[in-house]
């Protein structure tokens, strides 16, 4: 019951209707853009744009906050640790024994924290608005072998199932007096053998049953597959593609050809 949450939420927004291939491409472009930009102000503008995308995808607040809580933890770590390990530049703000904190170091820490936030959020937008089956379908259409696509979607499909199995196994062992958090670190990791083995065996049994079920429904009987749902690019997808390409190309040209700092 606990642990695993599917980030996708059913909806009918512009982002939900977009061709998943375009979405994957757009996210990759935006990722490159985020990695290319080094100005904090520009990154913040980009973050505002991505926040707009989250709003456009109408992701429910509970899932957004769940996702952001994780990102926030990483961001705080970066802001604290970056200046300590990157003491280059002047002026020096503080000296604590061998540790030197400089203003550029602090700025770079903040910039990279915002960058991580941008990166995570842009991928979250994809997860919020695209069902797993559509992601797999897009990968297959882009040339990934169907077998791999199916394997991937089965793996994703069984994540929550296994998460529930692991919880149930842990309960069963707790009821037999097992205390997972007791003892030395070595002892503690050995405690988990009592969870690991039933989990592996349960996974193997499931895989066995699943392969029989696939075969009994004539999986792999024909080499050329037809699809119930074909992906089709629409005019709006073309527009989205153009916007994303422009958003990437313009700053790239500015940075690498015109030598304008972005």
């Amino acid at each position: 019951m606990t642990g695993f949450v599917d980030l996708y939420t059913e909806g009918d927004t512009v982002l939900h209707r977009m061709d998943p291939r375009v979405k994957i491409f757009a996210v990759l472009m935006l990722t490159l853009l985020i990695l290319m930009i080094s100005s904090l102000v520009h990154l913040l503008i980009l973050l505002a744009f991505i926040a707009l995308l989250v709003a456009l995808g109408r992701a429910p607040f509970s899932k957004v906050s769940l996702a952001l809580r994780f990102v926030l933890r990483v961001m705080i770590m970066i802001v604290i640790l970056w200046p300590i390990f990157d003491p280059s530049g002047t002026p020096v703000l503080a000296t604590l024994g061998p540790v030197r904190i400089t203003e550029p170091g602090v700025m770079r820490g903040i910039t990279n924290a915002v960058r991580i936030c941008c990166l995570a959020t842009v991928w979250y937008v994809l997860m919020f608005t695209t069902p797993q089956r559509d992601l797999v379908r897009a990968l297959v259409k882009l040339g990934v072998r169907f077998d791999f696509g199916l394997t991937l979607s089965i793996a994703l499909r069984f994540l929550p199932t296994f998460s529930a199995t692991v919880e149930s196994i842990k309960d069963a062992q707790r009821a037999r007096g097992m205390e997972f958090d007791k003892g030395s670190p070595l002892r503690r990791s050995r405690n988990y053998i009592s969870v690991l083995i039933p989990t592996i065996i349960s996974a193997l049994r499931t895989a066995d049953t699943l392969s029989l079920a696939l075969q009994s429904r004539a999986y792999g009987a024909r080499r050329h597959r037809t699809y119930l749902r074909e992906l089709k690019m629409r005019a709006s997808d073309g527009v989205a593609l153009a916007v994303v390409v422009a958003a990437f190309v313009m700053p790239a040209v500015a940075k690498f050809f015109l030598k304008v700092p972005v």
Binding site: T165, S168, R176, S194, P198, S202, R205
Partner: peptide
């Protein structure tokens, strides 16, 4: 219910 959830 499921003995396989504890045997190891």
């Amino acid at each position: 219910q499921n003995p396989d959830h504890q045997l190891f």
